[in-house]
Amino acid sequence: MKLDLAGKTALVTGSTQGIGAAIAAGLARAGARVVVNGRSEGSVGKAIDALRREVPDGEFTAGAGDVTTDEGARQVVAAAGQLDVLVNNLGIFGAQEPMSITDDDWRRYFEVNVLAAVRLIRLALPAMMDRGWGRVLNIASDSAVVIPAEMIHYGTSKTALLGVSRGFAKHAAGSGVTVNSVIAGPTHTGGVEDFVYQLVDKDLPWEEAQREFMKKHRPQSLLQRLIEPEEIANLVVYLSSPLASATTGGAVRVDGGYVDSILP
């Protein structure tokens, strides 16, 4: 299969590091012009420098701005220009005792993990539908389906994102635009390393800490290891391509078999 995104422009939110940076690199390798997003110009500039070292022939554009605000989202979309692919990757997570999650915590998680995506879809989708081609991908999580007791607010926000994806896919029906969620499993990023050490002995070496975390806190994983960000990116690049034209309204799993289901 040839995943050819030449001539397409993709915006990846929260793409200065982790899964977002891996997605940006993967889309660039497939030929897309990639708009790299983060809150500050400094962080975006450093990320682009790193991405250009990783993908020397890739085309990257800065899209600094806080997409959790209406002004910031409009600023980023304006910087991107005509958008063909929107990847709503931005998200926050963290362990918290269930009864200590405040109303403000709940609001913050929904603002960042759900409403930022909705805001950008509203800005980008109409033009995609008018042109008859586009891809919207919302990066969800296994926690959307298997709600973790230690981060109910995070899991529930990702459940909502699955509903957002399905609803907007129905809105775009027949237009040539597809809208999907990607259910990412436990993934190896800097933030996840910090999260793992919240739950296991901080004195353990990383490889041992990872095994302990998977054994105690994610035992249902069939992969029995953390997923690498590039493995998430591979699925996103495919779903962003013309080859995925018949996949829409889905919640497509790249979760290492974590969700105990025979359905996607």
Rank of each mutant, 00 (worst) to 15 (best):
D70F: 09
T178K: 04
D57G: 11
R33S: 09
V114A: 01
R119S: 00
D4V: 15
R253S: 03
F93Y: 13
R108P: 01
F195A: 14
K216I: 05
Q17N: 09
L222M: 15
I262Q: 13
A251H: 02
E150Y: 14
R33Q: 14
T68P: 01
T189C: 09
A22Y: 06
L226P: 07
G14H: 02
D260G: 13
E59V: 10
W106I: 06
T156L: 10
V77E: 02
W206N: 09
Y197F: 11
G185R: 11
S221I: 15
S15Q: 07
I147M: 06
L239H: 09
A47G: 00
L125F: 08
Q17G: 01
R53A: 09
E207K: 15
S157P: 03
A30E: 02
V200S: 04
V136G: 06
G185K: 10
D203E: 12
T159C: 04
W106S: 03
G257K: 12
G63K: 11
V182E: 01
V87G: 00
A172E: 02
G42Q: 14
G94F: 04
L162H: 07
T102D: 10
V85R: 07
G65A: 02
I23D: 00
V67K: 03
V76M: 04
G81Y: 05
V35E: 00
L199D: 05
V112K: 01
L199K: 06
Q75N: 14
D105G: 09
N138Q: 13
G249A: 08
H188I: 14
F93Q: 13
T61M: 12
G249V: 12
I183F: 02
T187R: 08
L11T: 04
P148G: 12
R33P: 07
G18V: 12
A246H: 11
N234T: 13
R131Y: 03
K202I: 15
E228A: 05
T61S: 14
Q96C: 05
V192T: 15
E71T: 10
D105R: 12
P264Y: 13
V77D: 01
N180S: 04
